[in-house]
Amino acid sequence: MIPFNKPYLSGKELDYIQDAVLNQGKLSGNGKYTNLCQNFFNTRYGFKKSLLTTSCTDALEMAAILADIKEGDEVIMPSYTFVSTSNAFVLRGAKIVFADSRADHPGIDEDAIESLITAKTKAIVPVHYAGVACDMEKIMNLANKYNLLVIEDAAQALDNDFTFSDGTKKALGAIGHLAAFSFHETKNIISGEGGLLAINDERFSRRAEIIWEKGTNRSEFFRGEVDKYGWVDMGSSFLPSEMIAAFLWAQLENIDRIQERRIAIWNQYETQLKDWALKNDVMLPFIPENSTNNAHMFYLVCKDVEQRTNLIQRLKDNKVSAVFHYLSLHKSAFYQDKHDGRQLKQTDRYSECLVRLPLYFELSNEQVKMITEVIVNG
């Protein structure tokens, strides 16, 4: 069976974990490997401050606290996303206002956002679906116009860029006020579970570190900035262990090699499926001109749910695991009676018609060829 995903080990993960356990004398986090990883993100992507977290979910929850989300505040985000995007703000008492997806891509319809803004709107949370950039220029212009915060859900978007109309290029996650990344085993760069909060607005830097350390100024104490530490704000145990950071560091050392292979697989899928897709009314992934491609995912959008069901079954019969993705959050059991009743047609289309193909480092060219032949010759 060709699995949908297979975690890739670069070869140094266990060596660095052993170093953390035996030599560093610190397992609880914020040690050697935490600092190596955080400095890497700041240097490579231009984040003003980076804090490793135990998950992207935790990074989003930190962002909601930093944004001072309160009961009755409204937060705009796509309905076609993972539940963590919404949960982080629901936990603070927010009302989630769901936007539809684009017709050409599952990401948020940037042109639909402004009509959803009210006096209660506090933040916009664009989700870079499949790692592909939302139009951050439009979104940041809206945020500036209405004095809103932008929190990028960049769970899938590590190592991807957005180009502004003046030619300026910025890494995804370095544009909004805050951003959250995932290193779950299904992502390009992994640590099993793990995440990152990127802070790009210096207003939030000191408080972020306090929230990260259970609401204490413990980090300042260890840097010698205060003579004792105590409880100074709300917070939680968001900081991962050094073993998670050590695993992640081994991955980051190999990021260029990992990305090169994933992009090659993505390109092979596109080349071998584009004619079939055109003939069968199937949509392939769309990469806007202002976005690069980090090859997080290769998906197909079938013409209807029947075509998708048959395709998934045909692949399964040939020992290939292909899966659909999110169910519309606005129709979920938890949120359907809280939604304002607007139809989100594109969101529902992706929920019913999108299928994801296997994509991982060790997937061979021969396996990709076999998968595409099963699809094309079906």
Rank of each mutant, 00 (worst) to 15 (best):
S364E: 12
I211T: 05
I65M: 08
A171H: 13
S101V: 13
L51M: 09
N217F: 07
A246D: 12
E362I: 12
S205E: 15
T54S: 00
E213C: 10
E289A: 00
S205V: 15
D275K: 15
V320P: 03
E13I: 15
Y8G: 00
L148Y: 08
H330K: 13
A322E: 13
A295H: 08
G235Y: 08
I190W: 03
V376F: 02
V374M: 05
Y80L: 04
V232E: 09
Y360I: 11
L148I: 10
K32N: 03
R218G: 00
F247Y: 11
R223L: 09
K70N: 06
K187S: 04
N267Q: 15
S101P: 10
Q272Y: 09
N35D: 13
N254R: 14
P285H: 02
G341K: 08
S351E: 15
S50I: 15
E270A: 01
I96W: 06
F98C: 01
V97S: 03
L359M: 13
E137I: 12
Y45W: 05
H325S: 04
V232G: 00
F41Q: 05
G107W: 10
R261L: 04
Q18A: 02
H128D: 07
T372C: 02
I65H: 02
G378I: 15
S79N: 05
L344M: 08
V150I: 07
A143K: 13
I65Q: 03
G194N: 09
I76Y: 03
L149Q: 07
Q272E: 14
E260V: 12
S10R: 15
K122E: 04
I312T: 08
Q268L: 09
A99P: 14
E242A: 00
C37P: 13
S219L: 14
T34D: 05
Q272M: 12
F40H: 07
P288L: 01
S219H: 12
Q18M: 13
K303V: 12
A94D: 06
N280F: 05
D68W: 06
